[in-house]
Design a protein around this nucleic acid. Sequence first.
RNA 1: GGGCCUGUAGCUCAGUUGGCUAGAGCACACGACUGAUAAUCGUGAGGUCGGUGGUUCGAGCCCACCCAGGCCCA
Length: 925
Amino acid sequence: MDYKDTLNLPQTNFPMKGNLPQREPEMLKQWEESNLYGKIEEAGKGRPRYILHDGPPYANGHIHIGHALNKILKDIVLKNKRMSGFAAPYVPGWDCHGLPIELQVEKNLGSKKHEISKLEMRKLCREYAHKFVAIQRAEFERLGILGEWDDPYLTLANSYEGAIARELARFAENGGLYKGKKPVHWCSSCGTALAEAEVEYADHKSPSIFVKFAMKDDLGALIPALAGKKASVVIWTTTPWTLPANLAVALHPELEYVGLEVNGEVLIVADGLKESFLSQIGAEGKLVATFSSKLLERKLARHPFLDQDSVILLGEHVTLEAGTGAVHTAPGHGQEDYELGLKEGLEIYNPVDNRGRFFENIPFFAGQFVFDANKNVIEKLIEVGALLKTAEISHSYPHCWRCKKPIIFRATEQWFISMEKNGLRERALAEINNVAWIPKWGRERIYGMIENRPDWCVSRQRSWGVPITAFYCKSCGEVLADGKIMHHVADLFTEHSSDIWYDWEAAKFLPEGTICKACGKGEFDKEMDILDVWFDSGVSHAAVLELRDNLESPADMYLEGSDQHRGWFHSSLLASVGTRGRAPYKSVLTHGFVMDGAGRKMSKSVGNVVAPEDVIKKFGADVLRLWVAAQDYRDDLRISQEILTRLSESYRRIRNTFRYILGNIHDFDPATDLVPVKEMPEIDRWAMHQLELLKEKVLTAYNESEFHILYHAVNGFCTVEMSAFYLDILKDRVYTSKGSSLARRSAQTVMYTILDNLVRMVAPVLSFTADEVWAELPGKREASVHTALFPALTPECKDAPLEGRWEKMIKVRGEVSKALELARVKKVIGHSLDAAVAIKASGETADLLKEFVGELASIFIVSKAELVEELSGEDVYRSEGGEALEVVVTAAPGEKCERCWCYDETIGQNTEHPTLCPKCLAAVE
RNA sequence: GGGCCUGUAGCUCAGUUGGCUAGAGCACACGACUGAUAAUCGUGAGGUCGGUGGUUCGAGCCCACCCAGGCCCA
């Protein structure tokens, strides 16, 4: 007789191999056909809301691994919240305006770009953005991210564009919006401002000059050594043409400066640069004084050739890399000069027109092109005796990417949102303290930025964006930025899209009878600048959260990469505080960046880029999701073939545990076969206790968004507690007991509960696999695990004393398995069931073992285990450390039962089944 | 150069207020099983806790400096 048929061996159709690259797309199809997301929304009705607001990726190109990380994290958070009893909608979004799209469209147009109108250009940009939204949407959905993919928010949608214009109107109304000046990269040849991306750096020859700025007053009172001497601060510059715009000279606040007597006058330079300075001007100098820059703060020097003063200021941007440590400062022609000028209240002075020529009222250089003016400035300096040295240098200099000509930095009229008006900075800082930053240091990071940032420049000289809805008087040029009118325009945008700005006459936007406040005339031009795209996405709380019925502001969470402290977190905070007086988020979670296996950043040129598409093709989305969960996202994350291979092996382990349990509960019906915990054998209660601990750990980890802890907990549970211990011990009971026996049903109840709970807990991460297992689980349940809840805590399953007893037993078991291993090496046994063990223990261990005496054999998975007072023979295994434990392993006595493979000394006594042990006889009957 | 952050076995992570012979899983080596089988079980070998100096009876944990790496600025 073949007794194998009388055993209850595992049976399941659930495949061992995930085959995820093939299976996942099928599941996606099924989710779509069954309207899974709709069912999730249905299930969420009436529950408290949890709003995770999606930061919009830019609608350009395919998704990269960083996108995948971000969206998967969001999806894990959301699924976690849904399974915790919240209604957690997910409305994905895209950032659709802006330069990169415009540039790409221009590039695609080639030479035709000059022939088309702004309106046509914008139409092409719109199409381009839509194309990549569709591409990225498919790529995101493939990752298993559930949400309103059919109705995402797009910043190019009419309603969104209207909202952008409306938020700008609010800033206009409360006075936060103003027009000011700021230097920008300017191409004099094209007559246009350039964005950073449109600037190319190339070698260029420039004059290099050292210029004296004579101190206005005698310095004797401050620095006695200089009393009665003519003293000058010396600056170095490679743009002589900016000298007519000079308003100040900057020194470093922490540096020492020196007075050098050269040819009867004193030259002031930084101490650290005095030698190089003297050698460059080819002069001998005598050190006459050393002093702190602070002594000169706010003292006045004379402009070398204009009848005006130049004030000495202190600035951290001054360096000792080159020059003299005294920096010629023209706030209209340099970024750092501009910032210092703003701080010190200097005029942002620009004497240069659109074509790069000095205005007609500029002495000496009127009408001259700036690069031509260089030599004239130098001549002037020679004439007035202010030039110490001139030379020519070749250095990296910005050029226009279009016409390839060198560009200049030039202050132009721009729109700003004031950080001080309405106390925006103060209130934003206060709001930062009301937000939960995860991890905590996010607060320091954004706080420092808001504390120090200049006013927000929101205008861009471009086509693809939402226009700044202001007007200019045709006759006097006065600005008209009226809140009411701007609100009206916003409504028109919502109705028709912002394209109408480029289509309609100004008058069509203005109420009948609008007149200029300055001159009383009634004809206007439209402002042609557009808004910074950070303003677009920054107002999403108004355009999305406030406008959609199922969302609300402030959001519970914003979740983005740590670069967004300067980006979206930042602009959203200012946009919301400036108009609503509060932050748009209650918590902000940030993650690090994805690095290669060595912790280096990915780059195409290095060739260490890992594309999500490749990971999915090779391993499947669940492995990628597991990768996200396994790493501590607060730091940078690493990805490599090795890491993915490890992870996919870990995935297999978890999957196999699921499969094994499924196989063992194939004949189990929870409706009728459930065994109450109280009636279970102790080891089953131990397993229930362990499950309870795991639940606590995992649910806490979800609550605290520490997903890597949950991964390690689940992984450890599957391998240590289950596979290597509980499930291994259970085999005998589950395989050989009668199918419907209490012993077997009890074990099945435990396994069923564990699998049910485990699958729920793992569903936010292993979304595909969990649903696949869910479909195989017995019992009545929701159609998808994604509409189910996390397992409820059942503290009554916890049993601390029992855990303590078993902890010790597990230690003893470890010692026994070492003894078994030695016997195995000596060929005494093969399988552990071939063995009989005799144990000598003392103290508490002995007492404990006595209590377990009947179960020792099954716990050790041996045929016979006995406790003895004395052990003899050579092969006694002695434990190291702790309480003394001695073990002797021998071949088990008796015959091997053909059915359960345990050795028994009574086999053969039954004539009908001469090869079975008594236990199996009972089971077979 | 500045702000914020990170650095524990080959990989991913633990390490509570400073007190352990620094842990776990995976990978690796060896072995067992062939009733979880492209599985499963056991045993074993892996670490001057980025470096140096300091505080302390005692430091992976505290301090200083340095090195390497990341994000954002300049």
